[in-house]
């Protein structure tokens, strides 16, 4: 339904061109959930905004690639046609529920605005629909709540309202950009649960962007791992989590705190910083931080290659070599003592 082919989104800054998204391809079908993970600055948000053509142009431009939504290339549509798609066919849920609602408009007005923008309806019909939506996202006493202002809602409630607004026109694709980052863990679970339920009810395709691997594991069927504007590994959740084939993904997973770890164990981190996207390192973008890096890595920029059906990774190490290297590092860590310095 939504297909992205070799999409490039560059940012033209006074200091040079930043390759924020550099040749990304993936596709999503109805009812499917794709998770996109990566650290800050890996191009997740620019990618998400590209899908809705919401990046400010200039400075962002798209030198290559296409975003096909039901056969139409969004990169070539006019603003007017895009507006028909935004909110109607593709909707978005934002990271920060505290600032995503207009403080001077009532909840009901904002919901009805989203409904009336795309549907020819009378006000009372829109009102009816707004009440339905609020019920759908689990807000008690929706009739009364329509007349409330955003400041009368808690963060979790606001995120529910935002999801209701996003669902206002039954979109085919829902992009959730870090939907739970600003919420505490219990509310987080409720919101994720809600999104799953909505997906089952309406068959919406969900693209969930997060740096929280737990959220991804819970929600997504397929996972894309992004690093410095590229997809470095993609596959099903199980494959990504249990048959990791790319050192970056492995390092990410290893840096997660574990519930069964010793009390004094230090958390592992990935050394160094994400690369400067203005002049990325030679060869593989990850090699300066990669624990497995060899001389070869400084020269060769690995392509995304298939490891098994639907599972691809961008690394020059073969599966066997990677397994061996992992073991070497793990034993080294153990030798250095339980401390994992």
């Amino acid at each position: 339904m939504l297909e992205i082919n070799n999409l490039k989104a560059y940012i033209d800054t006074p200091d040079g061109i930043v390759k924020a998204v550099d040749g990304v391809s993936f596709s999503i079908k109805a009812g499917e959930t794709i998770g996109i993970v990566g650290e800050s600055g890996s191009g997740k948000s620019v990618l998400a905004h590209s899908l809705m053509q919401l990046n400010p142009k200039p400075p962002v431009f798209y030198p290559q690639g296409e975003i096909l939504f039901e056969g139409k290339n969004l990169l070539q549509l006019k603003e007017k046609e895009l507006r028909k798609i935004r909110g109607n066919e593709i909707a978005m849920v934002y990271q920060d529920p505290m600032s995503s609602l207009n403080p001077v408009l009532k909840i009901g007005d904002q919901l009805m605005e989203a409904i009336l923008t795309h549907n020819p309806m009378t006000k009372s019909e829109a009102r009816q629909r707004a009440i339905e939506l609020l019920t759908d996202v689990g807000i008690p006493d929706p009739k009364k709540r329509l007349n409330a202002y955003p400041h009368q809602f808690s963060g979790g409630m606001r995120q529910r309202v935002l999801i209701a607004i996003a669902l206002a026109c039954n979109p085919k694709v829902l992009i959730a950009d870090e939907p739970t980052t600003a919420l505490d863990v219990t509310i987080q679970a409720q919101i994720l649960e809600l999104m799953k339920r909505i997906q089952e009810k309406y068959g919406t395709a969900i693209i969930i962007i997060s740096h929280d691997l737990g959220v991804i594991a819970q929600m997504a069927e397929k996972v894309l791992v992004m690093y410095s504007g590229r997809i470095v590994e993609k596959g099903n959740v199980e494959e990504i989590f249990y048959q990791t084939a790319m050192p970056y993904t492995w390092s990410l997973l290893r840096s997660l705190p574990r519930i069964d770890s010793e009390a004094h164990e230090r958390l592992l981190s990935i050394e160094g910083q994400p690369p400067n996207l203005m002049n990325p390192p030679s060869g593989c973008n990850f090699h300066p931080r990669c624990p497995f890096a060899t001389e070869q890595c400084k020269l060769v920029d690995p392509e995304l290659t298939e490891r098994s059906a639907d599972h691809a990774a961008a690394c020059i190490l073969s599966e066997a070599e990677f397994e061996e290297a992992k073991k070497r590092i793990e034993t080294k860590d153990q030798e250095r003592g339980q401390g994992h310095d």
Partner: peptide, 26 residues
């Protein structure tokens, strides 16, 4: 730059409406 303006854009609200209902009152 506050997110509700972008959120309004995301749901396809037209520019004049954004100016009149989302920016001006604030």
């Amino acid at each position: 730059t506050i997110q509700y303006v972008e959120a309004a854009k995301t749901s396809g609200v037209k520019d004049p409406v954004i100016l009149a209902r989302y920016i001006l009152p604030n």
